[in-house]
Design a protein around this nucleic acid. Structure first.
Length: 301
DNA sequence: AAAGGGACCTGGCTGC
DNA sequence: TGCAGCCAGGTCCCTT
């Protein structure tokens, strides 16, 4: 579910609640949520208990809390994960059916990890140096990443992203441009919604081949993708249903700004043609048949 | 080595 | 009404 704008909205909300707070209690009633934590649920809890959060950072769709022992609590939301913050008050928060992990903080705040489809996870892990020696991403000044996220590329809103290098790396691939956009090792943060939005904005069909696109076209595509991510972040993300909400439970309102994703049969907002739905790389892809012409089929070698 | 396909889950919606 | 089948915002692992 959540792509960069949604994860960043949640990161910023979580940072407010977690920064400089001590984790006093940890419960993980659903062991699958900590399945990637090597020591299991009990060790997960004991690694966190008593630690103070010094930073809450993000790269692409991965976010993490840096702890005062120089370890990190890594959080990936998968398709349906949420973080929900409950400040202490006279009334107890209504329990959520899909509560998976609960952290209690020194001031009584509770942080719930809620996840319907259970593809998301939390784990405590070592930090490892970034490959370029530059700060790892949003929310941190340190050149350190959680070890399981070291293979994740910088995202398009990262001030240290190298756009010309990204364009060159993309042209060395031999695949559909949409698959490249979704490859978190090439560029991170883009998922199925914003990939379709970026391709619509750049007037490119999802199956255009990466190695056949001019550097200028790829630069335009990545600039379009950056703009879409930035606008969606300003709108608090895209909520189709209750699966994506911010840490207070509020929906984002970028859905009304979508130009492509989910608009099958509706008129293209540029030319009026009826939008189509196709499957590209096992993912639904929405595009305009006139603005985004399918490339000629290449003869097999 | 890189690229593609299937697996991993729960739940909501559609159509028979 | 019931239920089989399909679909969903992501990543990882295995095979080629």
């Amino acid at each position: 579910m959540p792509e960069l704008p949604e994860v960043e909205t949640i990161r910023a909300g979580a940072a407010k609640a977690l920064l400089n707070q001590r984790i006093t209690e940890v419960t993980a009633p659903h062991p699958r949520a900590v399945r990637h934590h090597e020591g299991g649920p009990t060790e997960f809890a004991s690694r966190l208990r008593g630690r103070i959060v010094t930073e809450v950072a993000r790269r692409g769709k991965f976010m993490w809390a840096v702890l005062d022992d120089d370890q990190a609590l890594l959080v990936h939301l998968g398709m349906s994960g949420q973080l929900r913050i409950h400040h202490p008050g006279p009334t107890q928060p209504e329990p959520h059916v899909h509560q998976r992990v609960c952290l209690t903080l020194g001031d009584g705040t509770q942080v719930w990890f809620v996840d319907q489809r259970t593809f998301g996870y939390l784990r405590v892990t070592e930090l490892a140096p970034t490959s370029d020696g530059l700060p790892a991403g949003w929310g941190t000044a340190r050149a350190l990443l959680p070890e399981p996220a070291v293979h994740i590329a910088r995202d398009l809103l990262d001030e240290h992203v190298d756009l010309p290098a990204l364009v060159r790396a993309t042209r060395r691939r031999r695949t559909d441009i949409k698959r490249a956009l979704l490859d978190q090792n090439l560029v991170s943060g883009v998922g199925n919604i914003y990939a379709d939005e970026a391709l619509w904005a750049a007037r490119l069909h999802a199956t255009r081949q990466t190695n056949a696109l001019a550097p200028k076209r790829l630069t335009e595509l990545y600039q379009a993708a950056s703009a879409v991510l930035r606008e969606a972040l300003q709108a608090g993300g895209t909520s189709f249903d209750a699966l994506y909400v911010d840490v207070a439970g509020n929906a984002g309102y970028f859905e009304r700004s979508l130009n492509a994703y989910g608009r099958v049969g509706l008129p293209c907002l540029r030319c009026g043609s009826s939008m189509r739905r196709e499957v590209v790389g096992a993912r639904a892809s929405y595009s305009c048949p006139r603005c985004q012409r399918r490339p000629a089929v290449r003869a097999s070698v």
